[in-house]
Simulated scan of single mutants.
Amino acid sequence: MERISLALIVALLRTLSVLPYKFVARLGMVVGTALYALPSRRKHIVLVNLRLCFPEKSSHELDTLAREHFRHVVRSYLERGVQWFGSARSIQNIVQIESKIDLDDRDAPPTIFMGFHFVGIEVGCMLYSTQFPVASLYTRMSNAGMCDVAKRQRGRFGAQMIERATSARKIVGLLRSGTPVMLAADMDQGVENSVFVPFFGVPACTLTAVSRLARLGQARVVPFVTEVLPNYEGYKLTIFEPLLDFPSGNDEVDARRMNTFLEEQVAKFPEQYYWVHRRFKHRPPGMASVY
């Protein structure tokens, strides 16, 4: 049964990859609106996260924001068709890129590209891999078949797909060899190698991997964000200036800086951040679960 389900999903994504982009994007928004009307675990998680992070908003405002987020999330799922099975040209046609650093610099220092889980993160990473060498960290999915498909399709333009559990030595080796590494450290991966620092004023279990890898690899840390453009015009990948004095030598200070930077980006388009994840899954000792 699992194989049949996987085959059907792959067939659907392949079909979506050849349909007009704007049609697929609009379809995703419509399906997202319909799914939001139904009670679900994911809807509950979204609303809990939004209430915690935006306590000043009314119930109506939170509901509106949650609905718009659901629309964007479902749309991003359908757009995986072109991201996973479309040509490099089809991806380049829907993603603009604006970089504050010279991406063609052959003498660039070791670089960690630090991403965040906005709905456009995948297409931004895919676009980058069509033009430049890169290694990308991923977290293994519970569904082994889907994980294999995702890994293969995400890496089909040459990106080296590195499982997050891989030893730091391998990642540091890539950095020192001149291969940039893309990763995202804004999800709750457990208390090991993490610290609790505020995210919109709420204690959030935040990974310290970025600081550690940057220190070991003597790498600069360059944030990037991919946003959904209005009117179904595609996406914009923005690559920022490297963070100054990062790592600082204090993992907690660095984690706070990461979350502060992320808050600034979320404020620009809050409906596009991945509120469907349990960002506050782990809580500091003595604090009750929120989900």
Rank of each mutant, 00 (worst) to 15 (best):
G190W: 08
A255K: 01
H277C: 05
Y36A: 09
N93H: 10
Y36I: 04
R51K: 14
R283N: 11
K170N: 09
L229Q: 12
K170L: 12
R257C: 01
F240P: 01
L229C: 02
I101Y: 02
S289W: 02
P270M: 12
V221N: 09
A209F: 02
V266R: 02
V31L: 15
P230N: 04
L262A: 12
P242F: 14
Q272S: 09
Q131Y: 03
D107G: 08
F269Y: 09
L62H: 05
V95H: 05
R140I: 15
S17N: 07
R278N: 13
I91P: 02
R14T: 04
V24I: 10
S136K: 00
A288D: 15
T260M: 08
E192S: 13
A159L: 08
V210E: 06
Q131K: 15
D148G: 06
L50S: 03
T139G: 10
D251S: 09
L16E: 04
I97V: 15
R154G: 11
R257A: 03
R42N: 11
G217S: 12
Q272I: 12
T166F: 03
K151G: 03
M114R: 00
L243K: 01
V31E: 00
D63V: 00
C205V: 07
S40P: 04
H44D: 06
S167Y: 01
V30F: 09
G145C: 01
G249W: 03
Q218K: 15
F280Q: 10
M161E: 11
R26D: 00
V276H: 15
R279A: 09
A11P: 01
E56K: 05
K151F: 12
L19W: 13
A288T: 12
L174S: 07
P270T: 10
M161G: 08
N250C: 14
N143T: 07
F132D: 03
L12Y: 04
L27M: 14
L52H: 05
K43S: 08
S167M: 07
C53H: 06
R3W: 13
V253F: 06
L174V: 07
E252I: 07
S129D: 07
P270V: 10
H282C: 08
A108V: 06
Q83R: 02
I91D: 00
V134H: 06
W84K: 04
A288Q: 14
M29N: 05
